[in-house]
């Protein structure tokens, strides 16, 4: 067997030394490469996981904030719509009120105008009546004081009528002006 190994170039002693060399290298690389690098990778993995956790938490917080802000905005939107609606209703009511008041005022103005015209007409007529009566009294006094002939009486009557018409015209124009 030993001769066969020797013929094939196989030396058990050398194989053992080579195996020892490999085991030594394995221990050395485990000590200087795989161990330290494994630690580095583990630390880095933990850091990345922690960072990812922080990032996820920050994202969750941001999402919660966003949801809260959206809810607030929705509330504000509803509130704004409500305010606008109330304002529109108030404006419509105010408009109707103003229109009604304006219509009432215009009616009052028209009524006051009509009453003033009526009053002026009545006063004018009263004044005319009084003046007519005064003129009639005056004419009667003149007739009684003076002896009047027929022509003179006719002239007095014409003059009296002319005065009455003139006074009536003056009263009418005064009422229109009022």
């Amino acid at each position: 067997m030993e001769e066969l190994f020797h013929a094939l170039g196989i030396e058990p002693g050398i194989i053992l030394v080579n195996m020892a060399g490999f085991v030594l290298l394995l221990a050395l690389l485990k000590r200087f490469a795989f161990g330290p690098v494994g630690e580095i990778l583990a630390v880095r993995e933990r850091e990345i996981e922690a960072n990812l956790g922080d990032a996820e938490r920050a994202r969750d917080m941001a999402l919660a904030d966003q949801r809260r802000i959206d809810a607030e905005l929705a509330k504000l939107d509803d509130r704004a719509r409500e305010i606008v609606s109330v304002a529109e209703n108030e404006a419509a009511g105010r408009r109707r009120e103003l229109i009604a008041r304006a219509e009432e005022q215009s009616r009052q103005i028209v009524d006051e105008g009509e009453r003033a015209v009526e009053h002026a007409t009545t006063e004018a007529r009263e004044q005319l009546r009084r003046e007519t009566a005064a003129i009639a009294v005056e004419v009667s006094e003149r007739v009684l004081r003076e002896a009047l002939d027929a022509e003179r009486q006719q002239a007095l009557v014409d003059a009296f009528i002319a005065d009455v018409e003139r006074n009536a015209a003056v009263s009418d124009s005064g009422g229109e002006r009022a």
Partner: peptide, 11 residues
């Protein structure tokens, strides 16, 4: 060398 490869294989 077969002794090197044999050592690795036996390891």
């Amino acid at each position: 060398s077969i002794n090197v490869t044999a050592a690795l294989a036996l390891s």
